[in-house]
Design a protein around this nucleic acid. Sequence first.
DNA 1: ATCAAGACTGGGAGCGCTCCCAGATGGGCA
DNA 2: TGCCCATCTGGGAGCGCTCCCAGTCTTGAT
Lengths: 342, 342
Amino acid sequence: MIPGGDDGRPTLEDVAAFAGVSRSTASRALNDDAYVSARSKEKVLAAAKDLGYFPNQAARSLVTRRTGAIALVLSEPEARLLDDPYRTAVMRAGYRELADVGSQMVLMFVDGGEDLARTMRFLEGGHVDGALVFAPHRADPLPKALKGLRMPVVFGGQAGSIRSGVHVVDFDNKGGARQAVRHLVEIGRTRIATIAGPQDQTAAVQRLSSWRSTLLAAGLDPAELAEEADFTLTGGRDAMSRLLARRGDLDAVFVASDMMAAGALRTLTEAGRKIPDDVAVISFDNHASLAPVMNPPLTSIHQDPQAQVREMVTILMGLLAGEEIKPRNQVLPVSMTVRESA
Amino acid sequence: MIPGGDDGRPTLEDVAAFAGVSRSTASRALNDDAYVSARSKEKVLAAAKDLGYFPNQAARSLVTRRTGAIALVLSEPEARLLDDPYRTAVMRAGYRELADVGSQMVLMFVDGGEDLARTMRFLEGGHVDGALVFAPHRADPLPKALKGLRMPVVFGGQAGSIRSGVHVVDFDNKGGARQAVRHLVEIGRTRIATIAGPQDQTAAVQRLSSWRSTLLAAGLDPAELAEEADFTLTGGRDAMSRLLARRGDLDAVFVASDMMAAGALRTLTEAGRKIPDDVAVISFDNHASLAPVMNPPLTSIHQDPQAQVREMVTILMGLLAGEEIKPRNQVLPVSMTVRESA
DNA sequence: ATCAAGACTGGGAGCGCTCCCAGATGGGCA
DNA sequence: TGCCCATCTGGGAGCGCTCCCAGTCTTGAT
């Protein structure tokens, strides 16, 4: 008898024969179903170990219609943005959280061109049971394409331009910006600028608009005090230069990400501004390897990507288990971590 | 007729029936095999589109024994190191290069505990056709476990402690360190320190030993001029402090990564050292979003993760195509990009 | 007119697994 | 003693696809 056909890999049949039981019993033993005698189970497990047996996942998922894998999709039309530490944190959290519920993460980047079609083909092909999707850009066609998918999908942050009918786990961007600006007002600042993120992303729009409305509510004037950048270090550096050139009298700045704040800090230091004495700085993200190690350490609005991903995984698993969860926009709280910069 | 059984997904059989041909002909049309009439092909394609048909990958790979997916495995026993920009670059490059050859990347992190067993189970399960593996730590048990795998594997950088019999694509760490130190010697520096990477990684060991031997060859004394750090910003910062405390007279430093150089730069600046006048700095990696934007911009040894991954993919595809490629340690050249810091 | 070679088609087998169902066995209780 | 139920087992079907093989139909050369 030639075990496992032509490529030398043992099959369940081989294990069963080796253990002296039927294929069915072997299957039951391996999947620890009920109704297998201890003796059979023991023999099967030993046989599997002896032969170096691993179940063929293709065969298994052909019948169970489950793959045990979940896609984590990061849609980023502009490739350069993937150095974003927030994205890195999301990937790590995704891997961990999915591993904890026994699922394998399949990471996919979508950055334009061919990618959308290939991504859809992959997802439709049944390679994965569901998807966690980050598609922050409003013009991104991915979320709409995903709506036609016969597979549960949960979004992290706003799903492109889609406003309802999808599962979303977002952070309280407005609340975070409000906290930051209020703190700056409370410590006596009156000319509070902002470096906003790219305005094609909902999160960035929310932080900017909340900055503005909080200023107005405090009786302060936002005119000329906003600059847009692209969430990168150099973007933040240049935006800060522009702000300084236009409003040299600013005494505080709310920066929409840690990375941009790092750039802004550099510009401010080079311009001879003392932080926080001359200019107070508050950023957004509170990334562990950025905010605390800056000089001075940054006061930052803390958002926890792991909590976000965990929530997304919980929803997805519920969906997969057949629960009726109605699509909604869940908002996770953020908090302010005060350090020296403000 | 109920198409696609119970979950509403059309099968090849449904497409064939809809197009009025047999399952075989439909299969041929979809996989553009030879011997299908233009008319049949057209009908089948139209039917597939009308029904929203996507082939079931489990069924397909059950018979073809191919999944179209490749694992990218990043083994990092210490979780914190995953902010490493080099790793990020590798992930992006992996995704791109694999997409270009029509394969889907399945990203896996292995950071201890349960992970090794789960990773092996996944790889053995036939979820992927092969693996690209980064396991730089010498004590890492993963490479040895991988040797028993019935699946082609290509390593990026040294494979743990394994010295032969595996496919490796590495960079010329020794040559790079030599270039850096020689450059520092040429511009007249005589007290050339180094901040080495963690010595449980072969690449870091090579850079350190090459720093030492190049110094000796130039008639300079390496005593007291080496410090070890962990490839992080704070690690580099602290190592630089220790060096300065011990040898305040140093006039150059070769730092084994951009990220550590960023930390070292901060320490040097705070200590009032002018760069490059008082202390010249050369780093390793030349990461696009780090080295050029530092203050001053860093002279750095350039290594191209994308080129490395491309080479790895080429080898893996060759292996998959059944070519007889004998395992060897391929070394990719590195070059020096000179900027202001040295 | 005859035949061979090519072009094309459809049916059947089978990939390795899970699940359903029928059957065998062995108490516990009337 | 008979009978039922719970426990355990093995065989068969079938998941959706690809591949092989036996056909049919065309074409062109003899």
